[in-house]
Structures are given as C-alpha cells and as structure tokens.
Simulated scan of single mutants.
Amino acid sequence: MENILFHATPDAEYTFVLNFSLEVQRGNQSSGESDLDEEHRKKTSQLRKRIIFGLGIGVLVGGVVLAGEWVFTVALSAAVFAGSREYFELVRSRGIASGMTPPPRYVSRACSVICCVMPLLTLYFGHIDVSVTSAAFFVATALLLQRGNPRFSQLSTTMFGLFYCGYLPCFWVKLRCGLAAPALNTRFAASWPLLLGGNTMWTVGLVATLISVSSIIAADTFAFIGGKAFGRTPLIAVSPKKTWEGALVGLGGCIAASVLLAKVFSWPTSTLSAVAFGFLNFFGSLFGDLTESMIKRDAGVKDSGSLIPGHGGILDRVDSYIFTGALAHSFVKTFLPLYGI
C-alpha cells in the first residue's frame, strides 16, 4: 500500500484526498442528521407524554371538583403536600442556599405536614385563621430553639412556605365547599341525576370553581399559542420565554372562556361581572406563574421536580392556581354582593 501511494501521480493523490474528504463530510452530515432525528424523536415523545398526562390530569381534576367536600379537600391536601416538599427542596438547592441558611430538614418536613393538614382543617372548621396562627407560632418556636444560631432567612423562607403552600390553597376549599348557596339559574341543576347529587349539588361554589379553573386553562393555552405565533416583546426578565403578545392573547382567551361559561351556567348573570372574573383569574394565574419562575430561577433549576412525566413537578402544574383561589373567593364573597350580579 505504501509503495502504491509513493509512486502514485499527483492527480491520483489529489483524487484520493478529495474522495477521503467527501467521505468525511458525508459521515459528519449523516451524524448530524441522526442527531437531529434523535432530538426530534425526544421532543415528539415529550409532547406525547405532556398531552396524555395533561388529559388524564384534566379528567381527574374535573371529577374531583364535581365530587367536592372531602374528596376535593383530600385531593387538594395531597397536592399541597407534594408541592410543599418541592418548595422546601428548592429552598435547600445550591442556587438559593448559597446566599442564605435554609431551614433544618425537620422543620421543612413538619411544615409540609402542616400545609397538608390546613385544607382539612379549613373544611372542618370553615376558617383557617387559628390554624395559620398556630402553625406560625410552632415554626417560629422550633427555629428559635434549634442548635446553633437561628437565622432570619430560615424564618422568612419557612413562613413564606406556610403562606404559599398552605394558606393560599385553602381558599379553594372555601370557594368550592364553603359557598354552598344553590346556583338557581344553572340549567344543569334541573337535569342533573339524583344518583350524582341531584340539583342541590350545583352550588355557587361549584360553578365558580369550574369557571375559574377552566378560564385558567384557557389563559395558559392561549398564552402559549399567542406567544409562539406573535411573541416578540419579552414580558419580564424572571421568565424570558413569556412575551407581552402571548400575555395579551392569554388574557383574551381567559375572558372569553369566563364569559362563555357564564352564559352556559347562567352565573354570573351580568356579562360585566363575567369579564371582571376572567380578568381577575388571568391576573392571579400570571402572578402565580411568575412567582414560581422567580423561585426556580434563584434555585437554578428548570422544573420544580419530576413527579409528572412531561410536565415537571407539581408546582409547575399548579403555580397558576395558588393565588387565584384567594382572588376568586374574594370576588364571589365580597365583590358580587357589593356591586350585584
């Protein structure tokens, strides 16, 4: 082989080098194409998982909301427990803990249990004030009596965890189960099977919860589609992928869903009230989304966990609902009686 190459003509040598270069280019091109195909397959598989688990979660949540009372509250408590565990893991992550002292693990675990119990106490007693005060006192005492020097960062992150993961979700119990006045104008009540609760099942709390949850889903969906199609102007540095265009499309979708469902359920009877309810739901969902994005950004992670395949952690799925329950309850309990429907 060496003799053949040694005695080869310059043209033959040039042809050999050229062919060798072409083979290398073909190999690199085929390797690049295979990498692109592999990446495309991964994205397709992830999208399929998101759709399948998203539909499954939607059906499950719809059934839980319709069931109400203890079924709804226990399911909410389970979600709160998982979300609070994720929150305290984010607090202990390298990105956040490098700038402050995180709370001890036994305090974090105790807070997760306390947050889980709060919705159950809300359903049983009808209010949450005593539970929150007692929980705050317990946490502050546990942190002050720990070994070493207690730090304010431990107290602040733990108290915010109680507020964020425990107190705020309780308003969904107050909304769904506490507002038990019948929705008299709802057409579903007259034809609803007696086996599934009869016409007494359709309360203001149930209708308000269904409208609120559905409008949040519409807001997220339309904001995603609008951002992909028209997104140009960044909304905020905390969440770089969100745009003003996507937010405006999401707001329109949220208000449209609220008004449409208000017509279907005949509650609230005023279109203006339905528009205001949709705007409030959108504001709460966006604020909750950005708040969780800020926590994840400081923690240096993309997802809060990996509990739900294709969707990340439980906080990634419920962040839009955390603040919205309190706003929706205040709207139905305070705004509508004051200004009428």
Rank of each mutant, 00 (worst) to 15 (best):
E39C: 09
F125C: 03
T158Y: 00
I52E: 00
L55G: 11
F88S: 05
S191E: 09
T158S: 15
D289Y: 10
F323H: 08
A8M: 14
S77P: 12
F16N: 09
G58L: 12
S156V: 12
C254Q: 01
K228Q: 14
D11W: 10
F152N: 08
A257D: 10
A257Y: 06
P337F: 02
S31G: 08
S98P: 04
E23C: 11
L336G: 03
S98T: 13
G250M: 08
W202N: 10
S77H: 12
E33K: 15
A208K: 07
Y339S: 10
W70S: 08
T122K: 03
F171V: 00
F230S: 05
F125I: 07
S156C: 04
L55Q: 08
L168W: 01
L145A: 12
F160T: 14
G252P: 09
A219L: 12
G197A: 03
L206W: 12
S306D: 06
I308K: 04
S212F: 09
A328R: 02
V139F: 04
N281F: 13
L210K: 02
P103F: 00
A183T: 11
S191I: 15
L261A: 07
I341D: 14
F16I: 02
E245V: 07
A223N: 03
V65C: 07
T157H: 04
G325H: 03
S239L: 05
R26E: 14
K49F: 08
L261V: 02
R41Q: 11
D303Q: 04
E13K: 14
I295R: 08
A75K: 07
F265V: 09
A12M: 12
R105P: 02
R317P: 10
F6Y: 11
K43L: 11
K42N: 14
P102Y: 05
P119N: 04
P309G: 02
G56V: 06
G278A: 09
M100I: 09
V74D: 05
A274K: 04
G305H: 00
G27R: 14
A8S: 14
F222M: 13
R232L: 11
H7W: 14
G313F: 00
R232I: 12
S239V: 11
T73L: 02
P150E: 06
L60W: 05
A135N: 08
E23H: 12
C165Q: 06
T133Q: 13
L327T: 05
L260Q: 04
S84Y: 06
K333W: 05
S108C: 13
G278H: 07
P103I: 00
I51T: 07
V275H: 06
V132E: 07
Y164E: 09
F279G: 09
P337L: 09
V113E: 04
K302R: 11
F287Y: 01
A208E: 08
E69R: 13
R187H: 09
Q46Y: 02
S77L: 12
Q146R: 12
